[in-house]
Write a protein that binds this DNA or RNA. Structure first.
Lengths: 154, 154
DNA sequence: ATGGGTGCAAATCCTTTGCACTCGG
DNA sequence: CCGAGTGCAAAGGATTTGCACCCAT
């Protein structure tokens, strides 16, 4: 999904100062790595990217900063059933969802305003104030539908 | 969510014989524990229930059987962001979704046929054949909306 | 200055795996 | 009988945590 890294970076800076949190180099580096990746990154992926950019950040800090980013609402946490989380920049107001192929593991995105609105309304019907949600559809992608029935174990 | 344990148990037996899998005592015990619980159980919860019922089953077998149950489609795997999975009996054709309170951790259920249909259709639009999906809404329950802003850390 | 942030490595904790033994069909 | 299932304990792997040191504000 296409996102504007620079804008998000600015929003993150604002989030930090609004919450009286120091804007350290590491936080900036991790945020940049996620904002400019435009992909679903594991915590390890993020660490690699940051290291390759010349500013290695400790594992613990990567996780701590990812938590911050998620809380700020600028990054979404995903779980594609791989046993670890993935992270993705989310420009405000542009939610999208994922289909994960149970056979080859590939991920497809889709988005639909009506769906998003409906999810919010249904939550409110049970007296719930929704903040964010997670939706993953598992099944078979086009290619795997015809070809071999089961390749990937996980 | 209300389910008929006995019916599910029968369906599981059928599933096993259809797939040439032995119907061991442990499998029956684990399946019973989940089918008759009508709640969101962690693997550990399941182990406890089985043990209390007088038929202790090894941890490994609990996990292996839960996998089986999920594959049979009779049990759904949930992730409420606690760091471990939960399992729940699902009578065929009665999908429902969850709201998880970020503050107190309580879980609320809701279901809506139109939502379910829409999710399936949207997946098909990206040439995907949906098998099952996972939807969790995070936010604040009625009580936590007014009272203390943040009680629960996790 | 100084309170929070960081890094390292050890600790956690859920889940999986190897292997000898047991059992359902 | 016999291949699949089970239990135990040890391994695995993502994430967290304790603590001494460092840096944004």
């Amino acid at each position: 999904m296409k996102v504007d890294g620079a804008t998000l970076l600015g929003a993150f800076r604002r989030y930090l100062s609004d919450h009286n949190l120091p804007a350290t180099q590491q936080r900036r580096a991790v945020a940049e790595a996620v904002f400019f990746a435009g992909d679903h990154l594991s915590a390890e992926d993020v660490a690699h990217r940051v290291a390759r950019a010349g500013e290695p950040v400790g594992t613990a800090t990567v996780y701590r900063t990812l938590d911050l980013l998620v809380q700020s609402g600028l990054v979404a946490e995903r779980d594609f059933g791989e046993g670890f989380k993935r992270y993705e920049a989310v420009p405000p107001g542009q939610t999208h969802e994922h289909c994960v192929c149970s056979s080859c593991g590939k991920v497809f995105e889709f988005s639909n305003d009506r769906l998003e609105r409906m999810i919010g309304l249904l939550a409110e019907e049970v007296a719930f104030r929704p903040h964010h949600h997670r939706l993953e559809v598992f099944g078979l992608c086009r290619e795997c539908q015809q070809a071999n029935p089961l390749t990937r174990t996980r």
